[in-house]
Design a protein around this nucleic acid. Sequence first.
DNA 1: CAATGCATGTAAGGAAAAATGACATTGCTA
DNA 2: TAGCAATGTCATTTTTCCTTACATGCATTG
Lengths: 133, 133
Amino acid sequence: MNVKDELRRNMPLFPIGIVTKLTELTPRQIRYYEQQGLISPERTKGNQRLFSFNDVDRLLQIKSYLEKGINIAGIREMLKQSQQVLEAKREAETAKKELSERELRRMLKQQIIHPRRGQIPLNHGELSRFFRH
Amino acid sequence: MNVKDELRRNMPLFPIGIVTKLTELTPRQIRYYEQQGLISPERTKGNQRLFSFNDVDRLLQIKSYLEKGINIAGIREMLKQSQQVLEAKREAETAKKELSERELRRMLKQQIIHPRRGQIPLNHGELSRFFRH
DNA sequence: CAATGCATGTAAGGAAAAATGACATTGCTA
DNA sequence: TAGCAATGTCATTTTTCCTTACATGCATTG
């Protein structure tokens, strides 16, 4: 998922009334889950909850866990864990990107030092654009 | 766009407060555009407006038209037109699908009547599955 | 220029929706 | 049976939204 999508998915959009319909949870339940640290929706200036897509997904997760008989404490840990998995994935992703960037730079260097026929070498000064200053 | 997505995009989700932030239009403007027939958001039981994604898109359209100096009457017509274009596209789409289905049935028939070597003919009774009862 | 009309601002008064807090209920489980 | 976890319910207060009405700024037109 790209950065833009993540922003969208975290954008506070829905009041609790809509969320109750989307999740079929009662306001009481949703507020309780917040109190128990399972979700932390944003608030408006006037202190009203505003939920994002991710919040709604999380609530649906919570609901399905509850239906499986897991209690709040258990769910809290499950959610923490899946959060960590997500973060790890993100890290792995950026690491991979960095790696391939370094690879790219190495290749460019090679190409400049030993230009092969049929490939256009970079002009003087252009290489610098591929390195951090 | 598939049917499921369309449902999603037409689902009434946002109260006017959120929409003002998403579009940077004032409530006054939004209500006026509704009065002028440019949008028709759903209402809650208690008569409060609820906007869908499509409504928000539409408002952004309206906004950009206004910024180009088009007046409400003009925009009303533009929107009508683009609505018609959409409908035409949908029609074309379903027509195409129907056509290819008929084509498929024709081919299946051909295949049964004149089975070519290397192709497996249908078993007796299977053809009926491809026709409406 | 005065008059008109369009698009928007603003304010009042009322109603819906949401917040919090407190107490009640239900279903387990020790 | 007592106790806890999860949820229901109710009262009260805030916040958000609704409609209606009047005001304003700006462009057009006679």
